[in-house]
């Protein structure tokens, strides 16, 4: 009896650890957002004349954004509602819309990769379009916790 109890507890603990190790921690979410932010920063540096236009840099940045955001909604599985205070509970209430907003950024970044911005002005337009995607999702689903 006691053994079964201990075994159950151990199993429960193992499952608990398993859940914690699965996708959806605060660190994982923030790491993806920081990757996208860093890529945006490289694009903005070109628009501000801090860096010269470089097609390779633009391509890498857009690829980073497209790939990173693709995996982002996976970081919000059921049960991970409390993992980061900046994630609004509305994410889980409107998961389809949340995914659609991530897909939009993915599709826009892919579209730009298919037709790579060719100069500083093109990068500026890209930053504006992608930035609007960031804003649209943050407006609905990101809480300020400062």
């Amino acid at each position: 009896m006691r053994f079964r109890l201990i075994a159950t507890a151990a199993l429960a603990a193992a499952l608990g650890v398993g859940t914690a190790l699965a996708a959806g921690t605060k660190d994982e979410r923030e790491a993806i957002m920081k990757k996208i932010g860093g890529a945006m920063g490289q694009l903005v540096a070109i628009t501000k004349d801090e860096k010269p236009y470089d097609a390779a840099v633009v391509k890498t940045a857009l690829t980073t954004i497209a790939e990173s955001v693709k995996a982002f909604p996976d970081q919000f599985p059921p049960g991970s509602e409390k993992n980061s205070p900046a994630a609004s509970p509305k994410i889980w209430e409107n998961m389809d819309d949340f995914k659609a907003k991530a897909d939009k950024l993915h599709a826009d970044a892919e579209g730009l990769l298919a037709q790579l911005p060719a100069d500083k002005a093109g990068v500026g337009a890209a930053v504006k379009a992608l930035g609007a995607d960031c804003g649209a999702c943050h407006q609905a689903y990101r809480l300020k916790v400062d």
Binding site: M33, K34, G37, G38, M40, G41, V44, V127, G131, C134, G135, A136, H138, Q139, R142, L143, K144
Partner: peptide, 20 residues
């Protein structure tokens, strides 16, 4: 002007409309 913080985080919540 752009909604981006110095770390290239972007504006969120009701501040999105204010920034626009």
């Amino acid at each position: 002007e752009t909604g981006f913080t110095p770390e290239f985080d972007s504006v969120g919540g009701s501040m999105v409309e204010v920034q626009q």
